[in-house]
């Protein structure tokens, strides 16, 4: 038995290689433009972070060094902000998951009065000029004594990611073959068991993508975090903007900015690990 299983474990080799070679001119052009638009600014910031002296009109810094890293990392407000950002993002994503996943499932499986209107309303937060909405919310929060509090910021971030956390999981749940759920009912699983053992695992790659997206979005969001959180609650990106606007030396902001690449890099690695190359390819229509 083991011998058969061992030899048969090989998955069929797809023709991925042949697809790859067909990368056409349009694709290459797009890649070059993207590289220029994304990599070049990042490179400039990175150069700033590691430069000690860089004066006009020199094309490259005259002196590299880690002096500003030492200075930035020895500041308490930087560490406070990093800790706060991590806590905030984790709490917001966890709360969103607990609320939104069951809600998404209900949206994808049930027909009820006002369903479509409610569904579209999650888009509303993104359909209008953001700042106007934020100011309105801030006015409400002021009355509720939520301004300048952790939960005030958490709440505004929750509103911000509601769309990802509803729309993406709904799409994931809807894509699942209902017969799979029926088959589970058929062999004796109750509705909750079906959700836990069949529906959720089937939707997992997409849902993990939604969670990562929400985490990263919350981590980097500044408008709401500043408006609701200032001055007591300062997330890392808000602090970075403060550095860039208020400090004479560019390097503080640059160092913090480079530091802020870390979460998104980690998120990307997680995404690859959990979602797998297959799902990525499928996501991009491959």
């Amino acid at each position: 038995m083991t011998a058969i299983t061992a030899t048969s474990q090989k998955a069929p080799i797809s023709s991925l290689a042949t697809i790859r070679t067909k990368a056409d001119l349009a694709g290459i052009t797009l890649a070059i433009i993207l590289t220029l638009a994304v990599i070049v600014p990042l490179l400039v910031v990175a150069l700033w972070a590691f430069s000690e002296v860089w004066r006009y009109p020199h094309l490259l810094p005259q002196q590299f060094g880690l002096r500003f890293w030492n200075q930035t990392l020895s500041r308490d407000d930087v560490w406070d902000a990093l800790g706060l950002s991590l806590r905030l993002s984790t709490v917001v994503v966890a709360v969103a998951a607990v609320i939104c996943l069951p809600a998404s499932y209900a949206f994808s499986r049930m027909r009820f009065f006002g369903r479509d209107t409610l569904f579209l309303s999650f888009l509303a937060a993104h359909a209008f000029p953001k700042f106007g909405l934020l100011v309105t919310i801030a006015a409400i929060f002021l009355r509720l004594d939520l301004i300048g509090t952790f939960w005030g910021v958490a709440l505004i971030q929750l509103v911000n990611i509601l769309m990802f956390m509803i729309w993406i999981p709904v799409a994931a749940f809807q894509a699942i073959d209902k017969r799979m759920e029926e088959a589970a009912r058929d062999v004796g699983a109750g509705p909750l068991r079906v959700f836990w053992s069949i529906t959720l695992p089937q939707a997992a790659p997409t849902i993990i993508a939604a969670l990562l997206l929400s985490f990263v979005t919350t981590f980097y969001e500044t408008d709401g975090a500043w408006l609701i959180g200032a001055p007591e609650i300062r997330t890392t990106p808000v602090l970075m903007i403060g550095f860039i606007n208020n400090e004479m030396v560019i390097q503080y902001g640059a160092v913090l900015s480079v530091l802020l690449w870390v979460p998104s890099a980690i998120a990307l690695i997680f995404a690859r690990r959990f979602i797998g190359g297959d799902a990525f390819a499928r996501g991009f229509g491959g």
Partner: peptide, 11 residues
């Protein structure tokens, strides 16, 4: 029940 689309759990 045996379904036409087999409805096996692919995970």
């Amino acid at each position: 029940m045996v379904f036409q689309s087999h409805a096996l759990w692919s995970h």
